[in-house]
Design a protein around this nucleic acid. Structure first.
Lengths: 124, 124
DNA sequence: CGGTATCCGCACGGATACTG
DNA sequence: CAGTATCCGTGCGGATACCG
């Protein structure tokens, strides 16, 4: 009964699945988790440069959210200029297999989806 | 190289993974796919009643998007009053395992996430 | 019954300027 | 270097009314 995992949860905070999807589904979380999964540990500006087209605000916000959820670890070195390092927690790492398999599915089936969209468009 | 699946795609339409996540991440798609995966075939108002708190507009929009992407099949019976049946396509069904495992992960790790959030909150 | 059409609030995310 | 603070446009999704 998959649907039972979603139904009867009026608020987002009540539903585990919606809670996870709200992270997974936002614009930057998955990419950041993926990059940290590859690179291990990165500083703020290293992440910023690797992603390229993210705004500083969204990088900060997304990292904070991931940290709050216990998916990303933040190490601050109290020096000037400051140095902050980000890495995945074990909980964050446990998400990597899902991201990889979803990535694989997406690349595998994207052509079929594009064909379907084109067909749908021409029929309307 | 997971991150290579996201980087260098300036537009959403260019990136397969973002394309999939934009579906998976929206408010209703996963729930609808899950329910159709359980029930097989359902009429519009059956879906509406099963979900309960979805607006008619979003049910229509989500179903159309899923249909356009080739994940959901729509059978229209030209009669009065009209009858429309929705079901998963094979492509849509191929997403079910991912949804199930993600659901499982979410329920499994939600307590840890909630603990982490509480801890993070009290530290700020 | 299975939709459309329209209006609208709000949250997401970008741009820019500033800071310890 | 690693953020904050502020302003602002856009789009998602809800509410309501109407339609074939």
């Amino acid at each position: 009964m998959i649907a039972e995992n979603y139904k009867n949860y009026s608020l987002v905070d009540d539903c585990p699945v919606r809670n996870v999807l709200d992270r997974v589904g936002d614009k930057w979380s998955i990419l950041i988790i993926s990059i940290l999964g590859e690179c291990g540990t990165l500083r703020f500006n290293e992440l910023n440069n690797l992603i390229g087209n993210i705004s500083q605000k969204m990088l900060t916000v997304t990292l904070k959210t991931l940290e709050a959820d216990g998916l990303v670890d933040r190490k601050m070195y109290p020096q000037i200029p400051p140095k902050v390092e980000y890495s995945l927690t074990p909980l964050g790492e446990s998400l990597l297999p899902f991201i990889e398999s979803l990535t694989h599915w997406a690349k595998e089936n994207m052509p079929a989806i594009l064909v379907s969209r084109a067909k749908y468009k021409s029929n309307n």
